[in-house]
């Protein structure tokens, strides 16, 4: 189901918690699984549940509670742009418009070629660098005016 490398990483996470508290690693395990599989399918969540000895529905609860888990395919690059108030005061609306226009999709949609998904995000804790955009949950891009968005898309496309 998951690669040995992914399982090793999950085991490292489990080791952070007391021995009878494996469930504490569920967020990390889901994140690792999602990174490997692109998104969280039902059988992936079921696998994580069994691996950690949790009720499956408890894993589903976690996967649907936290924003950064994806329960449907997201395309090659998921771009999450923060539209919170501080970002909006520094150009997030313009950035979001620009992204929608260039990618030809609205929020929560995947481009026809499957290469991008555009998502609306909430505060990422980096408002001083607004507008903030997150690529695939991991890479934070800051001060995303039109030029920098164009450059990012070019880079991701190539």
């Amino acid at each position: 189901m998951l690669s040995p490398e992914a399982l090793r990483r999950i085991d490292t996470e489990i080791a952070k918690y007391p021995a009878d508290q494996k469930q504490s690693a569920v967020m990390a395990a889901l994140a690792i699984a999602q990174q490997e599989k692109g998104w969280l399918a039902e059988d992936t969540m079921a696998f994580v549940a069994d691996y950690l000895g949790m009720p499956q529905v408890a894993v589903l609860e976690v996967a649907t509670f936290y924003n950064m888990y994806d329960l449907s395919p997201v395309g090659k690059s998921k771009l999450t742009i923060c539209t919170g108030l501080p970002c909006a005061l520094s150009g997030a609306d313009e950035a979001a418009d620009h992204l929608r226009e260039k990618l030809g999709v609205g929020f929560s949609e995947v481009t026809a070629d499957g290469s991008f998904m555009l998502k609306e995000g909430e505060c990422m804790g980096a408002c001083g660098d607004a507008p903030v955009l997150l690529v695939n949950n991991r890479r934070m891009c800051v001060r995303m005016n039109k030029e920098r968005i164009d450059a990012l898309l070019d880079e991701l496309n190539s």
């Binding site: 469930q23 504490s24 569920v26 609860e61 976690v62 509670f65 936290y66 924003n67």
Partner: peptide, 27 residues
Amino acid sequence: LFAHHGYGAYICGEETALLESIEGKKG
């Protein structure tokens, strides 16, 4: 000392939600 990585829920900043989250539950 260990690091626990959140995954996108503002409410986990509330201290008891944060505890629930470390316990592997909804925050």
